[in-house]
Every structure is written in structure tokens, then in C-alpha cells.
């Protein structure tokens, strides 16, 4: 017991902002992203790591704009990315005059940041920011091959999303008064569930979906075991980036335990691209994937009143290139955030 952590007082997602690259712009959600980079996805920087940092800076600045707040109004920024030492976040957010906590949860970082921010905002703080990012080029460099290396991608491989999402959380309803969201339904976080790191024995770094799916299944099973709700009570159960392989495995694993989520399940990695048309193999992935899809699709749905009750499960493959070379398998993790709709 004690899997679900109730948020004692409502924590609102005051605003959200997204920054993406060209491939994401050309995807099905393209028109809903707030900022799109230049044609080269460099964001005006001379290295890809700097580009990623710039994306985080842009995302948080825009989210603060939407929230009509300044950086000094925030009591903490919780941020993470896929780079060593969370370089994308550390460098990107260094000029904000706000206490900073760096996080690593691989591709689950967006959910991890939202989860921790909501806990902080419900007790010791009033406003926090949750930021995460990934950049296809910096991730290729760090985890795979040089960008110009001529290799073929496996059909199970996923495409790291170039994207950054920033969310401003607040426990004050009155914060909405000056924003453009005033008068519409707003997203509120009601409970969360921290994921367990689960090693299912997958060693293939080109099949992250299979490495993450058991962790997502575990979190969902623990959640529904303890919760009084059923999958059909939710409009959407959104996993971050399981992709084509992982999504099918997740539905299988939960169905085997008597939990049928297939009717309401959607996956960020599957909806961010036209998977076949854009030749994205098993779909999108990365810290940025779940963040931008959550903001551009799910939160937009809540604000426009199309959906009212959703589960967001950020999924991460805790992959370390050194450990992989040493023959270790890849543990997965999945954090759950329950977001519902509140009328102001």
C-alpha cells in the first residue's frame, strides 16, 4: 500500500510551453507547438548541447510569459535532460534567478519533474517550474553514432524528439486571473505514483520500448490496484514514449493481469510523428517527447474541455552506454501523474 500519493491541496498547471524542431513541426501535432526552431534545429548555437540548453531557456521563458510571472516568482525549477550531468538544464536555466534542482529520469524526466513539483507546491512552496528537454542531435552524439555516420536504424529503434516542455505549477487559483487561461477549464494534479526501476533483461539499446514497457505496466497495475477508479474512468491514459513496440507490449502485460487499457491508451512517441510517413521506425522518444505531447495535446485538450481526466505516465529507459558495453541490461522506469480538469 501507499503506492498512490495524494496531493493534499490542489496544484494547478498554471501554464505550459513547448519548443520543437523541424521533424516535430511536420508531425500531426505540428500546429500546436509554441516555438519552432530554425531550419537546421541549431537554435542559433554552434554546438548541439548549447542548442538543447537554448531550447530549455526558450521553453521556460515562454511558459513564464503565459503565466504572467517572473523567474523570481518561482520558488524552484526542477529540470532534467538526457545529457551527461544534465548539461542541457544546468546551462540552459543558469540565468534564471530561481533555486534549481537537476533531475535525471531518462525519458521519464518530464513526469518526474511534474511529480516532485506538485508535491513541493502542495506543501512548502507556492510556485515551481518543471522543465525537460531532448535534442535529436545531442542524443545521437551521446548515445549512438556521429550525426554524419552512415548507418541504418533498426526497425525497433526510436527517434529522439527535438523538443522541450516547461510547466509552471501553482497552488494559487488567483494566479490564473491575469492569464489567457482565465475562464476556461484548467489542469490540476490530484495524485501521483512514483515508479519503480524495473530491469526486465532487455540488452538491445535499439529496443527501448521493450525495456520500458514492464515498468509502465508495473506502475499502472500498482495504481489501479489501490485506486477505486477503472481505466474507463479516464479519457486518456498517456504513456510518454513507449513507441510501437513498447505500446503493444504494455497492453499485453496489463491485459495478462486483467487490466484492459487499450481503449484509452495513447503514447506520446506514437502520436508526435506520422510514424510511417516520416520514417520514424518505432516512433519518438526522449525527455522532450512526453513533455511536448503532454502540453500540446493533452493539456490543450483539458483547456478546451475535450478531456477532463487523464493519467500521464512518463516512461524512461535508464540506459547508460558504459553499462551496455559491459553487457548490462537496461532498467526501465515509469512515473505516474494524475491530471484532471477544474473549472475556475
Amino acid at each position: 500500500m501507499g503506492n498512490i500519493i495524494q496531493i493534499p491541496k490542489p496544484v494547478y498547471i498554471l501554464s505550459s510551453a513547448t519548443v520543437v524542431g523541424q521533424h516535430e513541426k511536420k508531425g500531426p501535432l505540428g500546429e500546436y507547438f509554441d516555438i519552432v526552431g530554425d531550419a537546421d534545429d541549431t537554435f542559433g548555437c554552434d554546438t548541439w548541447e548549447k542548442s538543447e540548453s537554448e531550447m530549455q531557456r526558450l521553453a521556460l521563458s515562454r511558459a513564464l510569459n503565459y503565466a504572467v510571472k517572473k523567474d523570481s516568482d518561482l520558488e524552484a525549477i526542477l529540470a532534467g535532460d538526457l545529457l551527461n550531468q544534465c548539461a542541457g538544464s544546468c546551462y540552459g536555466l543558469v540565468n534564471f534567478d530561481t533555486p534549481f534542482l537537476g533531475l535525471f529520469g531518462a525519458c521519464s524526466t518530464a513526469a518526474e519533474a511534474l511529480l516532485l513539483s506538485s508535491l513541493l507546491c502542495s506543501s512548502h512552496m507556492n510556485r515551481c517550474a518543471a522543465v525537460s528537454s531532448s535534442h535529436n542531435a545531442s542524443a545521437e552524439r551521446q548515445f549512438r553514432y556521429p550525426l554524419e555516420y552512415g548507418g541504418q536504424r533498426a526497425p525497433t529503434a526510436q527517434w529522439t524528439v527535438t523538443g522541450s516542455g516547461a510547466f509552471i505549477l501553482s497552488n494559487k487559483k488567483e494566479d490564473f486571473v491575469n492569464t489567457s487561461y482565465n475562464g476556461s477549464p484548467v489542469p490540476v494534479i490530484s495524485d501521483v505514483c512514483i515508479g519503480k526501476s524495473i530491469d526486465a533483461g532487455i540488452t538491445d539499446a535499439n529496443n527501448m520500448g521493450a525495456a520500458m514497457a514492464p515498468a509502465a505496466a508495473d506502475t499502472l497495475l500498482r495504481y489501479f490496484k489501490e485506486s477505486s477508479s477503472q481505466p474507463r474512468d479516464f479519457d486518456i491514459i498517456m504513456t510518454g514514449d513507449l513507441g510501437f513496440e513498447g505500446s503493444r507490449i504494455l497492453c499485453d502485460l496489463t491485459a495478462a493481469e486483467g487490466l484492459d487499457i487499450s481503449a484509452v491508451h495513447c503514447d506520446g512517441g506514437l502520436i508526435i510523428y506520422d510514424r510511417i510517413g516520416q520514417d520514424k521506425h518505432a516512433g519518438g522518444s526522449g525527455c522532450g517527447c512526453s513533455a511536448v505531447v503532454l502540453a500540446a495535446q493533452v493539456l490543450r485538450g483539458i483547456r478546451t474541455g475535450q478531456v477532463a481526466n487523464i493519467l500521464f505516465i512518463g516512461t524512461g529507459a535508464l540506459m547508460n552506454p558504459t553499462a551496455i558495453q559491459q553487457g548490462a541490461s537496461i532498467p526501465g522506469i515509469a512515473h505516474l501523474v494524475h491530471i484532471s480538469s477544474d473549472i475556475l
Binding site: G21, D41, N136, A137, T162
Partner: peptide, 13 residues
């Protein structure tokens, strides 16, 4: 290879 690195920069996929 060195000349390529001097003259060009890597591009996004």
C-alpha cells in the same frame, strides 16, 4: 577527415 571537420559542421538528421 580532418579537412572535412575544418570545412564543415555536422547537420541534424
Amino acid at each position: 577527415g580532418l579537412l572535412a571537420a575544418i570545412c564543415f559542421r555536422d547537420k541534424r538528421k
